[in-house]
């Protein structure tokens, strides 16, 4: 689209602080409701940790999705890939601690392959990313459901440490998520691959003219995205003690990961945003869930509010934009 040719340079400080601002609102709302309903026992450090621990799988997936969206792509196949990798991990391990390493290897290999295929379809065959990854999602889900229709295999106790182990009062998985986010931040901020992602996402043609191998960057971003989804699958296998072909789609990780990325200020058109915004988005989602539980909002009203909140949060960034929304 030609109107992306000259993206206006936004130098607003607002852009940088907006995710923090939204997170602040969410926190205030949580504290307000806890105090307002006289449930101050929920305002403890332990409970904060438990809130942060609500959305580890979503967080891991969203780190990857941030890469895909930054490069002006999108990945709808993460939910099926999560199911597939959780099942694969659980089947390969099958309760045997000696099989943990092979299982993790197999899962990461699957993620790598799916990411490569997604990337090639999008970058080389120039298929619209929405269609390419939707098609991929159907194919993965179909292959998976052809073989399994329920929980299969079992994760050994040793591997359940990933989801249930703690370091002091902090769950290991939360530390892992933060470390993953820090690594992603480092890549995006300090490495060539990171700056290329922003260039390609901002303006593909200009990036190509500047000598960046755009296809490789897009493929790389999709590999990162799929690898993160695979890790989320490993985490869920550990948390649920097994894998089933529906856990990814039941968790709506595809649409939710996209939602938290854009709530975190990363622009769907690509090129602007970052990991810490996404982390803020994940925390906002966890807080919203906890607020709903605290206030006893019924399941249907929750949906209505969630839909409105997603749009409102994104509008918070976009409303000042001068460009046409796609």
């Amino acid at each position: 689209m030609s109107d992306i040719a000259n993206p206006p340079r936004f130098t607003f400080r607002f852009e940088r602080w907006a995710p923090a601002l939204l997170l602040g609102f969410a926190l205030l709302a949580y504290v307000g409701i806890a105090v307002g309903t006289g449930q101050t026992q929920y305002l403890t450090f332990d409970n904060l940790i438990s809130i942060l621990g609500r959305s580890i799988a979503l967080g891991i997936t969203a780190v990857g999705q941030t890469f895909a969206i930054l490069v002006s792509s999108i990945d709808l196949s993460v939910a099926s890939l999560i199911s597939a990798t959780a099942v694969l991990a659980s089947v390969v391990m099958n309760g045997n601690p000696a099989m943990i390493a092979p299982a993790v290897g197999a899962v990461l290999a699957l993620g790598l392959v799916v990411g490569l295929i997604n990337g090639v379809l999008i970058a080389r065959l120039e298929i619209n990313p929405l269609i390419a990854t939707l098609g991929m999602s159907l194919i993965i889900q179909g292959c998976l459901s052809a073989f399994v229709s329920n929980f299969v295999g079992q994760v050994p106790v040793e591997f359940q440490v990933f989801a249930y182990g703690t370091m002091g009062s902090v769950p290991f998985s939360l530390v892992f998520l933060l470390a993953l986010a820090a690594a992603a931040w480092f890549v995006l901020r300090f490495m060539r691959f990171g700056s290329d992602i922003y260039s390609v996402g901002g303006n593909k043609d200009a990036a190509r003219v500047a000598g960046i191998k755009t296809s490789r960057v897009i493929i790389g971003a999709h590999v990162v995205c799929s690898l993160c989804a695979s890790i989320a699958g490993l985490y869920l296998a550990s948390r649920l003690r097994s894998g089933a072909p529906w856990i990814g789609s039941d968790g709506v990780y595809d649409l939710e990961s996209i939602a938290v990325v854009v709530i975190g200020g990363t622009v769907l058109a690509g090129g602007r945003g970052g990991i810490w915004g996404t982390m803020a988005g994940v925390m906002i989602f966890s807080l919203i869930d906890s607020i709903f539980n605290l206030a006893g909002v019924d399941a249907f009203a929750k949906q209505v509010l969630r839909g409105i909140i997603i749009v409102a949060a994104v509008a918070f960034y976009t409303v000042r934009s001068k460009r046409l929304a796609a």
Binding site: I74, A315, A325
Partner: peptide, 11 residues
Amino acid sequence: LKVPSLIATLG
């Protein structure tokens, strides 16, 4: 509000 249609209609 300039919200991308994907997000607006998802909401």
